[in-house]
Amino acid sequence: MKHSYPQLAVALVSGSVFGFGLSLSGMLNPQRVQGFLDVFGAWDPSLAFVLGGAVAVTALGVQIKRISSHPVFEPSYHIPTKTRIDAPLILGSAIFGVGWGLGGLCPGPAVALLSVGLAKPTVFVVCMLVGMQVHDRFMTSQAGTKAN
């Protein structure tokens, strides 16, 4: 897929703003994230403001999508066609949540932390990438088995 310079510039600016926001909000600090997730212990509610801001920005994006026919640099929106809540979605969400709670990182902040050069986020990202490859290979082999 070929990308234009404006698309790449928008991606760079968007990623930079996202990374800056993660840093500013404290989402790059696993202890802070775990404190937010520890609702029955020493709960740190400060990340609820980050969540509220994310919901507000998303709501704005949804409204913009509703009134526009297509994105600025694409001929159409890329909306998932699968909308059913099924077992793989629930299992994947649970695995994501457990990993986030144990590690204190989700993929976005983990990738942003690679720029700092710390060992723990690097190990996290490597394990995440290995897990993604294992999933892809397993799901591809499962799909082939079901087709036969």
Rank of each mutant, 00 (worst) to 15 (best):
P71M: 14
G103N: 03
G131R: 09
V10M: 09
S93H: 08
S16C: 13
H78P: 00
G117R: 07
S23C: 03
L28P: 00
S25D: 10
G108I: 06
S69K: 12
G97M: 12
M27D: 09
V134N: 06
A56I: 12
L51M: 10
A112G: 04
L8I: 13
D44N: 15
L12A: 13
G41E: 04
P109S: 03
S93G: 15
L47A: 12
W100S: 06
H70L: 02
M1V: 07
V125L: 11
G97L: 15
H70W: 08
V116Q: 05
F96M: 14
Q31G: 10
L60I: 12
F124M: 02
H78A: 11
L113F: 02
F124C: 03
I67V: 15
A59Y: 02
L28V: 14
G52L: 12
P6H: 11
M139F: 11
A112F: 10
L24H: 15
S25P: 07
L89D: 06
D86T: 08
L118T: 01
I79A: 09
F124E: 00
V55T: 08
A94N: 04
Q34W: 05
F96Y: 14
T140W: 04
V62E: 10
H70K: 13
D44V: 07
Y5A: 07
P80C: 10
D38C: 08
T83A: 15
F138S: 07
V39T: 15
P71S: 03
V62N: 03
G35F: 06
L129K: 06
F49E: 05
P71K: 00
S4A: 06
L89F: 13
A48F: 12
V134K: 05
V126F: 11
K2L: 11
S69M: 08
L51N: 08
P71E: 02
L22S: 10
E74S: 10
L114S: 01
A48N: 05
N29L: 09
V72I: 14
K2P: 03
F40S: 13
G61D: 07
A112K: 09
L91Y: 09
K82V: 12
H78Q: 15
G101I: 04
A87E: 11
F36N: 02
V116Y: 02
Q34H: 01
G131E: 09
G144N: 09
G35T: 10
S25Y: 07
L105P: 00
V33L: 09
S25R: 06
I85M: 14
G97C: 15
L91G: 05
Y5C: 01
V116F: 03
G144V: 01
A48Q: 04
